[in-house]
Amino acid sequence: MQAGRTVTRAVAVPMARDWRGLLLISPTLVYALTMLAAPLALLIIMSLWTQDVIEIRRTISLDNYRQVFTEPLYRVLMARSLLIAGVVTLVTVLLAYPIAYFVAFYGGKRRGMWLLLITIPFWTSYLVRIFLWKVILGYNGVLNSGLLGLGLIDQPLTFILYNANAVVITLAHAWAPFAILPLYVSLSRIDHSLLEAARDLGDGPVRRFLRITLPLSMPGLIAAVLIVFIPTVGDYVTPRLLGGTDGLMIANMIEVQFGKANNAPLGAALATSAMLIVASVALLFLWLNQRSLRRVG
């Protein structure tokens, strides 16, 4: 990890005033500062402005935020985004864990091939992939045709398209590798002699898993949860294509404010609020985790 390396280097190279590294990294850092930090700062400032009919009034007010937190429509969208992202995270991580476990413990020489197989679909034609879920889940879709053909159902299933369920299924698919990889990284680092020792001391498979594998894979689990949860709260394409009206999320509303509704400051306030809420949920999650780990430790 980065931190460990920094420490050893700092000890090995006692030149405290070595600016070469900072010089070398500065173009990348400056790019990130001008293209990310500055725009985010402006976004936050803009969220405090207000939109008049034609132009933006640049006086500071919390008016937009009052709207964001009091108008039922925005509250519903925000709560739904968090709920959908939460369910997606839970489903994705639960489904991903056994795969990561399988590849890390039994992948052998084929680990590379497995990881490649798992990740390759996710770099390709994102929009078409999302759209195909509509084809799979639709009224006359692949799934319904298949189930009807097999005689497992006699009416097409309707609860799986144009609602939050469709969004959850599609997002759980789209984010799978982002959950598998961090889990794989931490599972593959587990020292197998610990498991052998536990077996020798008479622990069964369930106890071994709960007392050794699961705790040692916690860093990967936490990373997986955050890597899936944070971006899915702000997903735009999936709710738009598969969500119907009951499955729309906050990013769709942000886009509407910047586009049709022509109220960029309100859009900025929605985006800023979403970021703040997601950040606090993530921090709360990390804090709870650390507390529970300390209690176990």
Partner: peptide
């Protein structure tokens, strides 16, 4: 900080650049 765009929703990256 350089790695942040990996986890930031792309909508946020898009609109904040648009605002600038």
């Amino acid at each position: 900080f350089i790695m942040v765009p990996l986890v930031l929703p792309e909508v946020i990256v898009g609109i904040s650049l648009l605002v600038v």
